[in-house]
Design a protein around this nucleic acid. Structure first.
Lengths: 164, 164
DNA sequence: GCGAAATAGTTGACACATGAACATTTGAGG
DNA sequence: CCTCAAATGTTCATGTGTCAACTATTTCGC
């Protein structure tokens, strides 16, 4: 069964709810929508998944490789998760683990030649999908939203630090 | 290991990337940040998870119960997923499945008395967390962002229908 | 130099999520 | 009626994600 589309996570909010809640639910719904679409397209057209694409996208900018550690931070997921995704990509021959001279605990992950080729094709198309989705917003609106998100993000980060 | 926080999914984008991609990555990162925080708080303070909370939130507005089907649409997840989460909540005594008179295929899920009590406590706190997070934005900004997200959402939905 | 603490990565148990296959029931057309 | 397509919910295999426990290494304090 496939997730239906008629209704919406937003309908969770009662009509009298606080604006912040309504906005948050709308963010969640929008995010899920774009993410589901991207995942479907990646699967249909390249037989891969969003997390794999994401990991490869990180590596693409670091030809010398990244430590599992750094991948985990950049992707905002746990180390165990990165281990799993890397295992799969390695089995598919798209990335490889190499030793880090200078720290025998660490291992560098980097794209193989096949990985670079595969990623290039996916990335071009992925960019088109996202640009198409966001064409609903003007350049000015995108800038405004980006600025608001930056403030929101930094505020939440400070809340996290306060708790810690 | 816990996901580190210093870096960011946004760093995926090369500096010359299209504005839409940058915005999308920022949305992803912000979303993940708020979601991770909410999940942590729900776990620490109520021993539950976001999907369970979400399902209960849907039911709370329908005392007579919702079909698995409707839950799936509202939560924007697949039916199999709803089955699983419902199983867990049922085991915890927070929801119950009852027969739907008039359609023997369907089953209604509804909160138990314990479920209603538990949810009320969680919901109040959850609202505070979200309001606190979004206090980084003014009322006017929240309205602007909500409007943009509505347009974005509806645009992506129309893209989905075109593909289908 | 040495021992304790921190760091890097992996593993295992579990929750959540998808898509496909399945059984049951419904409903619409003949 | 009767058949057959559609709809409802479950199950299964697999992937993604968390957290906690573990091993191996490095670094820091002395």
């Amino acid at each position: 069964m496939t997730a239906a589309r008629a209704l919406d996570a937003e309908t969770r909010a009662g009509s009298g709810d606080h604006g912040a809640i309504r906005l948050w639910l709308r963010m969640l719904a929008t995010n899920r929508l774009v993410e589901t679409r991207t995942r479907r397209l990646l699967q249909e057209r390249h037989g891969t998944t969003l997390p794999r694409f994401d990991l490869m996208a990180q590596l693409e900018r670091f030809p010398r490789g990244l430590r599992m550690n750094e991948l985990s931070k950049r992707m905002m997921v746990t180390g165990g998760n990165v281990t799993g995704i890397t295992d799969l990509l390695e089995r598919e021959g798209l990335v490889e683990r190499v030793a880090d001279r200078g720290d025998r605990r660490a291992r560098l992950v980097r794209l193989t030649a096949a990985g670079r080729r595969t990623f290039a094709a996916m990335a071009a198309e992925h960019e088109r999908w996202i640009v198409e989705a966001f064409s609903a917003l003007s350049r000015r609106e995108m800038a405004a939203m980006a600025a608001m998100l930056a403030r929101l993000k930094s505020h939440v980060r400070s809340l996290e630090e306060r708790d810690a």
